[in-house]
Design a protein around this nucleic acid. Structure first.
Length: 381
RNA sequence: GCGAUAGUAGCUCAAUCGGCAGAGCGCCGCACUGUGGAUGCGGUGGUUGAGGGUUCAAGUCCCUUCUAUCGCC
């Protein structure tokens, strides 16, 4: 049985302040203060859907140098129920992660995982993907659940539409703003910071309309939603360029659901501070190792059967220091759960350490060179 | 030794009256971006145990033979 940590870190007197420490071009290095410690940016947040980062233990996450972890409101509401988490002392104690936690609003999952019954200006009625039961989320309900869960950063309930359906994007922009106002009004806890989400798809005028509305609430941080949902890469970069101009410089920017090592570099290059993504752990479960500079290794592939090399000879993670590709392939082939753990550690290390290196380069004033080399190396592959 | 039953893809099995030899799994590979260890997509795969016969046509009917399982002297 896992014992939750007992010590309670002293809350920063400046909780939810963001110190912008350095800039290099549009790239930024900063520190976001939360009641559970500081988040040094740029940062990559591993995703722990149901109060766990899947096959990775908190000790392993800590060894990786992770600070912020994302948990999912939709999943925790359905199972075990936010009341259970609340009763057991809140998310930090429940999942034994004493550092900063961010919860999603449930908006995206309602659209991507459940069966939607109806969506209107008031909220969304949907059927659970677990048992088919009917539920309803509203902006107020999402805040109530997230307050019961108790993460440091909580997200406004939003609508994430198809990026190329302009009519759908336009109504999602206005609905997301209206829902943010209601979520803010429903908020009662002062030890959680609410981030607003900018929508607008790939349309400049809609991104601007959304950003103006959302930043008007003077929130402690802002998220860019509706990207990495099927649009082309150059379009994502263009939207991020717009966002850098539209979002206040003195607040953290969070690019939701992204991404690959290349996405992180391209995001930081355009002023993004926070990332989260399921890719490193999902690919780990699907036998794929992310390589730092482009490329992936599907370790299930036959040629690795007798390969004595580590996944990445230049990687310093515990998996690469310890195990051969041959052994990892054997674990996968034998159906051993350990393969998901070892690959998750490698994939998370790739993104967490890349974020840390980018931070250092920004502080040193060498980030533009770092990014140029990184993108050149990727192009050479 | 005699008898019964069964041999079809790597595995488990389909294939109507004799009418283009198939499926699932595995294997090989691809995808995966605000997470279900999920899922989706594509590919490889056969001397139908062997040999002969009947027939326009045989996995299917006939003969011989080999192998396996069960039963009986």
């Amino acid at each position: 049985m896992i014992q939750p940590r007992q010590e309670n870190p002293t809350p920063s007197p400046n909780s939810f302040e963001f110190d912008l420490e350095a800039r290099d071009g549009r790239a930024r290095a900063g520190t976001f203060h939360t009641p559970h410690g500081d988040i040094e940016t740029p940062v990559f947040a591993p995703v722990g859907t149901a109060a766990t980062v899947k096959a990775v233990t908190p000790d392993q996450l800590e060894a990786l140098g992770a600070s912020l972890v994302l948990a999912n409101t939709y999943h925790l509401y359905l199972r075990p129920g936010e009341d259970v988490v609340d009763e057991l002392g809140g998310l930090h104690r429940f999942m034994a992660w004493d550092r900063p936690i961010l919860t999603d609003s449930g908006g995206f999952q309602v659209f991507s995982l459940s069966n939607i019954n109806s969506i209107d200006d008031d909220g969304v009625t949907f059927k659970s993907h677990v048992d088919g039961s009917t539920h309803r989320f509203t902006p107020e309900k999402s805040i109530r659940i997230q307050e019961a869960l108790g993460a440091d950063i909580i997200m406004a309930f939003d609508e994430c539409p198809e990026p190329y359906d302009r009519g759908g994007v336009e109504s999602a922009v206005d609905r997301t703003s209206a829902w943010l106002a209601r979520g803010l009004a429903a908020k009662t806890r002062s030890d959680q910071s609410l981030f607003g989400i900018v929508q607008g798809g790939v349309h400049a005028d809609l991104r601007e309309r959304s950003a103006r509305a959302v930043t008007g609430f003077g929130l402690p941080g802002y998220a860019v939603g509706g990207l990495a949902v099927g649009e082309k890469k150059p379009e994502m970069h263009t939207v991020l360029d717009w966002m850098d101009d539209l979002l206040p410089a003195d607040k953290p920017r969070y690019l939701m659901g992204v991404g690959t090592p290349q996405d992180l570099v391209n995001g930081v290059l355009r002023g993004v501070d926070i990332f989260d993504c399921v890719l490193p752990t999902r690919m780990a479960r699907n036998h794929t190792a992310m390589l730092r500079s482009g490329g992936r290794l599907n370790l299930k592939n036959a040629p690795f059967a007798r390969d004595p090399a580590p996944i990445d000879p230049d990687c310093g993670c515990s998996t690469c220091r310890t195990f051969t590709r041959s052994y990892l392939r054997h674990l996968i082939n034998a159906g051993e759960m350990l393969s998901a753990t070892l690959l998750s550690i490698h994939n998370l290390h790739t993104l967490v350490s890349l974020s840390r290196e980018m931070r250092r380069a920004i502080l040193d004033g060498t980030f533009e060179e770092f990014a140029r080399d990184f993108i050149a190396a990727e192009a050479a592959i």
